[in-house]
Design a protein around this nucleic acid. Sequence first.
DNA 1: TAGATTGTTAATCGATTAACAATC
DNA 2: TAGATTGTTAATCGATTAACAATC
Lengths: 215, 215
Amino acid sequence: MEEKEISQAVVSRLPRYFRYLGELKDEGVERISSQELGERLNLTASQIRQDINCFGGFGQQGYGYNVEYLYDEIGKILGLDRKHNFIIIGAGNLGRALGNYMNFERRGFILRGMFDQDPGLIGREVREVRVRPMEELEDFIRENDIDIAVLTIPKAGAVSVAERLVKTQIRAIWNFAHVDLNVPEGVQVENVHLSDSLMKLSYNIRRYMKEQEET
Amino acid sequence: MEEKEISQAVVSRLPRYFRYLGELKDEGVERISSQELGERLNLTASQIRQDINCFGGFGQQGYGYNVEYLYDEIGKILGLDRKHNFIIIGAGNLGRALGNYMNFERRGFILRGMFDQDPGLIGREVREVRVRPMEELEDFIRENDIDIAVLTIPKAGAVSVAERLVKTQIRAIWNFAHVDLNVPEGVQVENVHLSDSLMKLSYNIRRYMKEQEET
DNA sequence: TAGATTGTTAATCGATTAACAATC
DNA sequence: TAGATTGTTAATCGATTAACAATC
């Protein structure tokens, strides 16, 4: 069952498909055509069929796609059928906010521990998960079968913490620090650069204003 | 000075250029070639020159780019030379975390108010900014010259709040709610779908594991 | 069977890379 | 002037869209 290389452009659309299919399922919709789904998502039917077909033929000619089946299959493709144990490194405002966010748990992402270097934060609890000192990091990862580390520390510390992480069994880093991490292949990194996102917003505000001026 | 349509692919790279140039500036580097910058950013020199040239000729043949000048110019392109007043709607964990994040202020994004429908949260303060009831939303936006609304409320309420927002003078919505917003052109939307991001991470973990199995 | 809609191949479009003349 | 490096045009690559045969 060799899987051809899937472009990240396709991967980026999968969670959105998954979300819409979930909503359709909740609405009780049983089947949907690529045409209809495309209208909802504002994509071409062709693109949707291409995307889905990267992973296999989940539809049926003359019928379309079974909503629940496609939902489940995309869930599996996204790896949501497994449990992922994660830790949060950086128990500041953002780290605690993410720790409190229950929806991740619903998708199989379980918060197992939090870490911080600030002695003032150590011992605090977020949803019964205690904040631990950085010294315990490696042992904790090993003993608790941690897959994912969420980095919510200032950029200054992020690079060196990432270096510690890649020496462990960790499989992925969800990086909120405003710095690009260099990791060996085999460790996945997903960046959430909030300031970059805000700057894009700012760019688009300015661009629209200039467009208006011109006319 | 007609500006041709710039693709969002280019726009997405600008904040990263801006960040690296800022670091170079801080290091005291005066000039840099597209070649060198490309090596740092892991992009081709050609792409960097193309990207920059969308906005004008900021370099000099035989010399390269002046770091400080390019930094400033990209800052202007991103609209960081103006102040933006913003509000946060949804004073839960995430809203408060964003409200506490000081770096936005450094870039000219000023938190002016927070809103929530939960009476228990109203009156609380985040960095001297008080949480207000949703009823005051429209008046507050008008009276305080608000540009940007940050949406950190659950998806259930997000669509209707967005509908209220687009009737005001608001220019942009930074949307953290897990739902796609439909807004008229003229209102910019930037989505931060954290669960989508986490699912991409999960996909890549799974993909890598399968690759390993195969060999 | 006829109609609908997928799966898949071919055509188009856009973004990235390469090449090189212009010029500092 | 010679060397370096941009700005810009041309070539390539990849992603999206269109078309249509396969088939339920």
